[in-house]
Nucleic acid binder design. Structure first.
Lengths: 236, 236
DNA sequence: TGACAATGACTGACTAGTCAGTCATATTTT
DNA sequence: AAAATATGACTGACTAGTCAGTCATTGTCA
């Protein structure tokens, strides 16, 4: 791993470390009264701080090259504290993925197709996808899973069950709706909802690898893709 | 001794393997001896053995977690030998990607659109892609690049310039052909050849992450995708 | 052609570190 | 004061990279 020839390992050290140090509750007046940020709450905060810091580090360096010392520093915590919350590095990584995926999962479960057109639903999906994933930290998480998933079967399994399988099911329902309403002609799409999602995935990867040298207008690309699916002639 | 930082001892040769030999290979004149594996040849073989071994290891474990000791063992070579051919771990990794991508690059330069239909050309492309990339070691290489590319800008650059940019250009030409011949309606595709390639990329990633638990029939998926692009009604 | 010298590819023990995980000690809460 | 938490110095396993020495191959000369 990192080492030897002055790797750029500690390039950006301490400055961006948010010192969440000793934020004493200050309710220390009467020992008989309980202090406000109850222990459980402070513990939960620490846990979250560790997860947030670890996410940043794992995204930036990948699993193997991430140092728990750095995670601790970034979280404003001693290394030993990490071990009060997580059994080991791998557990931290796995729980982190779970935590990070939580919001995405609930979002997948929430939005029902409603009674509108399939095109409208897919357009909404595309818009949300771009502004909440391609552009943001969540895109990094997806890339992280793609990068490390093969080495962490449990992570890949979890991701498949909780995100991919559900996403595919939801997408298939949308496609069937579109076919039923006569918006979509290509019936084969039902068997491969992946085709509908593929450009979105590609956008995530593209942005991560080539974003700086050849940015991709994901929004526009997805619009063209929907035109393809719904059979509209391109404008230009 | 062992004065740590001796920067002068940097006579790294190896890497550019230029047969600087003056005259050419010894003739196998001696009847008593069999064909000499001549030093230069054996050296080249070793270099290749190292690259092959390193490829396996990097694919299996990722860059950071790969041990050069293991690479050496797999290549049937001592660790020091690796350093006779490559400056360091990172150089080995980069040259390996270059080497691995070579065949793919030349293949991209070779096949001209010819005079046939765009559909035929794309079908051929899909077939070759599945049987030569999705299924094989080359797919692993693509996944490796996706996984590590963000941490190795030079690798991402190289991949973009030599493979992605060319691939996109070739794909765009094919799309334009299809539009000119009236096979493809959706003109917007010209601006986003990525859409045509996206399912193929997704197949590569899918196979790597979920292949074991939820295999994807890439061939069939690409066929459906082409039906979508060329406006055929799905069979099923 | 055979003997001997020069070359440099190869080896692997060794150096100088790195880092996950531990635990005795210190701090805070009850 | 005891219990619960947090700390960070420390340990031990592990690894990238080095280099003095070995010896098969190649070159030279008698």
């Amino acid at each position: 791993m990192s080492n030897g020839s002055s790797k750029s390992a500690d390039r950006r050290r301490g400055e961006n470390v948010a010192p969440v140090k000793k934020q004493k509750p200050a309710r220390s007046g009467s020992p008989s009264l309980k202090s406000f940020p109850s222990r459980a709450i402070r513990a939960a905060e620490r846990r979250e701080a560790i997860i947030a810091a670890a996410l940043d580090e794992f995204i930036a360096r990948g699993y193997a090259a991430t140092r728990l010392d750095d995670v601790a520093k970034r979280a404003g915590v001693a290394k030993g504290t990490i071990y009060l919350h997580f059994a080991d590095k791998e557990t931290l990584f796995q729980e982190l993925i779970r935590t990070a995926l939580g919001p995405l999962i609930s979002r997948l479960a929430a939005p029902p197709p409603a009674g509108g057109s399939a095109r409208a639903a897919l357009e909404r999906f595309a818009q949300i996808f771009v502004q909440e994933i391609v552009t943001t930290r969540r895109g990094d998480i997806v890339r992280l899973i793609i990068a490390e998933g093969a080495r962490f079967p449990s992570v890949a399994d979890f991701y498949y069950r909780e995100v991919v399988a559900r996403g595919m099911a939801a997408m298939r329902a949308l496609i069937e709706l579109g076919i039923a309403r006569g918006e979509i002609r290509q019936q084969g799409l039902t068997r491969f909802p992946q085709i509908v999602v593929a450009p979105a995935m590609l956008a995530v990867i593209w942005q991560g690898l080539f974003g700086s040298q050849a940015p991709l207008d994901a929004t526009e690309m997805l619009r063209v893709h929907l035109d393809l699916i719904f059979g509209e002639r391109g404008t230009t």
